[in-house]
Simulated scan of single mutants.
Amino acid sequence: MENLYWKSLLSQQKIKEIYNYARSKGFITDFLFIGPFENIGNSGLYKEFPPEKEILLNQKYKGKNGIEINWFKPMEKSINGYINLYNLIYPNKWSTAYALCYIFIPKSQEVLIKIGSPNSYKLFIDDSFIYSIETERRNLFDQEIIKIHLPLGLHKFLIKISNTMGPFGFYLGITNQKDEPISGIKISENIQNYIKRKLPWIKIIPQKDFIRESPLSEIFYTFYGYILGTYYGYRDDGEKFLERAKKNKT
């Protein structure tokens, strides 16, 4: 439902409401970018390009098709929270790009990191690999929710996005456990001192807490299977629920 409301705001171009809603979702829009790197046959997700080894803002690298690339900051920031790499990176088809920022957490706490993307991606925090998915799906926010404990201080966020032929971009939001913006959070695009560390986390399946399962009807299984498989890209999980729907129907 949230995504439907969001699309309604966007279609009506209600700028003030879009801006306020994006802030309430905790969307991060301050990033540095670099790309494109190769993504031949969607293999770029699994290749370790220079940003995964080092962050040197003045360094130039050989990117896709041998072009020279470097880190850059766009002239304008996203108002609606969606980071549209299709307009920032060229060539933008069968390409891989990185987005970088540093986030200050004002006190140690459990937070929810929410990611949405039509593309395959990897997320790194404090140089530790957190999550990855290979997918092609609809362009929505909150498709993955990661619950993670972040200590007080600065944290390095690096997200890698690998596109094929379609839309190219992502949403990245961070909230407290009550799904509210974190008071005192600060975002920086400048290189900051941070502690390299491994961070324990768990994945929360979106929408699961909002849909009540009924073992007497196949409607729940069909709907939930469709949501997981089509909208969120969890094809295996979605197929399991669709199989349950068939069994209940018989």
Rank of each mutant, 00 (worst) to 15 (best):
E213C: 03
E213G: 01
Y226L: 03
L172W: 06
N80C: 09
T135V: 11
A245Y: 05
L199H: 12
L152G: 04
Y226N: 02
K47V: 02
F49V: 14
K77C: 10
S217R: 11
Y82M: 07
K60C: 08
A97C: 02
F241R: 02
Y46S: 00
D127M: 10
N92I: 14
K198C: 09
I113Q: 03
F241W: 03
S217L: 08
E54T: 12
I67R: 05
L85D: 11
F223L: 11
I130Y: 03
I219R: 09
K77H: 03
P167G: 14
P167M: 14
A22G: 09
E218M: 04
N190Y: 04
C101P: 12
K107P: 01
P91S: 01
F129Y: 11
I130Q: 00
L228M: 05
K53R: 14
I40T: 13
P50R: 11
G35A: 10
G153A: 09
Y224L: 12
E239A: 04
A97D: 03
K178M: 15
Q109M: 15
F141L: 09
E136N: 11
N119Y: 04
Y98W: 13
Q13A: 15
F49M: 09
W94I: 05
K122E: 11
Y102G: 09
F157S: 06
K156F: 08
P36C: 00
L216T: 03
S162K: 13
F27G: 00
K160Y: 00
K107Y: 14
K247S: 08
K14H: 13
K208E: 13
I55R: 13
G81A: 01
K73Q: 12
L88Y: 06
R197N: 07
G35Q: 10
I79W: 02
L112Q: 02
K7C: 00
P181I: 03
P118R: 08
N176V: 14
Y194S: 00
L172P: 02
G41Y: 12
F124T: 08
F241Y: 14
E54Q: 10
I28E: 07
N65I: 00
L140F: 15
Q109N: 11
K25D: 07
G238D: 11
K7L: 13
Y46I: 09
Q12Y: 15
I191W: 11
S24G: 01
L56R: 13
P74W: 10
I187S: 08
E48R: 10
K247P: 07
E17G: 01
S128W: 04
G44T: 04
N139H: 06
F223M: 06
P200E: 13
I105C: 05
L112I: 00
L10W: 12
F223S: 01
Q13G: 00
N248Q: 11
Y5C: 09
F27I: 06
Q12N: 14
F141N: 03
R23K: 14
K203A: 10
H149Q: 10
K147Y: 06
H155A: 03
L85K: 08
I219A: 04
D179F: 15
F37C: 08
D179Y: 15
L57S: 04
L158S: 06
Q143T: 00
I145D: 04
G116Y: 12
A22D: 00
K122G: 04
L45M: 08
Y82G: 04
L123G: 07
G26N: 06
E68T: 14
L56G: 02
Y98V: 05
I15T: 12
A99I: 05
T164M: 14
S43K: 07
G66W: 06
I125R: 06
L140G: 07
K53E: 14
G26R: 07
W71D: 01
